[in-house]
Amino acid sequence: MEKITIKINGKDIEAVKDQSVLEVARENGFAIPALCFHPEIETRAGSCRVCLVEVSQNGRTRLVTSCNYPVRKGLEVRTDTDLVRRIRKGVVELLLSRTPDSPVIQKLARENGIEKSRFFVDEGEHYRNRCIACSLCTQVCEEVVGVSAISMLDRGRDKAPGTPYLKPSQVCIGCGACAYACPTDAISMIDEGEVRKIWGREFKMVTCSVCGKPYIPEAQVDWIVKTTGKDRSFFDKCPDHR
């Protein structure tokens, strides 16, 4: 771990080489908004473009996404220049015209001084509810859960996460990690009694032998037992009663 010093908004900051600008900045109290960033996900897709900052290195100044820009010696970062604000505002306005019904995006828009988008709003076949197509759900499913039940489908405006053949996935374990990770609460996961509905499939839940609460899908237990060798009886009780 090579320690280096960089500048953020004029202040000297110590950091570890190749850490992301976003993490270094946040650790040191500089606020940078971001949607598709998740600390557990190694693939920093940098797709939402909300975390843009201005960096100067080797005499070159440009806007970069802070979530995946590695800090190197001599880097100067500015998180709040006119250009950063202006371009971020444009990005957020586009997101608002894409997902006008998302409370997360609405709030972000207000914070960036946007009342209403000046552009047309996605509707009809292009209506994506709250999804900003950031692909975080598919990365969690692949990198953290390890099942790759969903992927990003199509391209351009039509890009959206989905299951193969748009049919219920045979490998999905119903863990809901995708829904938890989603920055805009766009993935529908409904727990009703002993059944969880997600991605068009129903999963039977395991009930805690102490409190009687259904808390984990059976398919997820099967997956954990299979991949970690953990004893099945471990899942008789929910985390609160173990």
Binding site: C141, V147, L153, T163, P164, Y165
Partner: peptide, 24 residues
Amino acid sequence: EEGMKRVSEVLGVPESKIYGVGTF
């Protein structure tokens, strides 16, 4: 679809990725 399923088995690539490629 049968083809994509088969490719998934033989290459060991998740169906989700194959379908993603198929739609892209």
